[in-house]
Amino acid sequence: MRHLLSINDLSLTDAIGILDTATELSRISDGQVKKLPTLRGRTIVNLFAEDSTRTRISFEAAAKRLSADVINFSAKGSSISKGESLKDTAMTLQAMGADAVVIRHGASGAPQRLADLEWMTGSVINAGDGTHEHPSQALLDAFTIRKHLGKGAADLAGIKVAIVGDVLHSRVARSNVLLLNLLGAHVTLVAPPTLLPVGVESWPATISYDLDSVLSQVDVVMMLRVQQERMSDLFFPNAREYSRYFGLNLQRLALMQPHAIIMHPGPMNRGLEIAAEVADSARSVIVEQVANGVSVRMAILYVLLAGAPSGSESN
């Protein structure tokens, strides 16, 4: 595996391998060890054409814990938001000798373009592209679920997950549906019909418009962020009505099974899709997701960069 562009790049073995690696790495980082020499001398570029402080910091921490050199090629004000072409950016990265590029981009498919066009030789890691995918987020979510509910199993067979909210525009949802399905979990998408894409029937997930009827059935409730700009785009009448039907509040929390956990990829709109009391409750693993993000991203970097370039086998 050279790139991580989509969960579709992963086999079940690959996915479990990343989760297992992350498990070992999280044990190391739980202890005194903060830094491993594994990627010493390798250069990782964080190319963030879209603001995302938390994802960038998470990848940066992961790379630094593996002793890689990290270059931040960041967000607004950089040449990529001034119309420099992806091609020129890629050629710049190549000239800088990047072994891997972690890319966050507002255009769906931009990481794949970067990988396919062979302007640069390094690995491309998708850190969220448009409304397409966010595979590292899905891996850290799966890691978190496995840790809490996996009962020692390698996969997530039999675990029921509800993903609630703006599925239409969510790259987190797309990656999670694919990965959770790959790992044997059962996914229910809960959203107003306006926020589900046409064609969602072909996804390996059950569809529901009724959050209350789903809550008591699932082991995991994953809330999605509702972007402010959706308010004015006729997807729902107003924030209050959205919250009334699809917000996770204390009354709804009471419907959940005692063991069920609450997740959110962040950043949260407290009071809109999730009530503050719920986000801060004991059932919420939202803060832990962030911590797990570093271990999972270390595992991704390890898997993509540590071994010999594929094809060059040696004894």
Binding site: G17, D20, T21, E24, L25, R27, I28, G31, L36, P37, T38, L66, Y302, V303, A306, G307, A308, P309, S310, E313, S314
Partner: peptide
């Protein structure tokens, strides 16, 4: 003690799975 992450020959071999460390 798994020593995979400390190896100096990682790039010369196919990817190794990390094994558990327990102290």
């Amino acid at each position: 003690l798994d020593i995979t992450m400390h190896r100096d020959d990682l790039r010369m071999r196919p990817l190794r799975a990390i094994m558990p460390t327990s102290i």
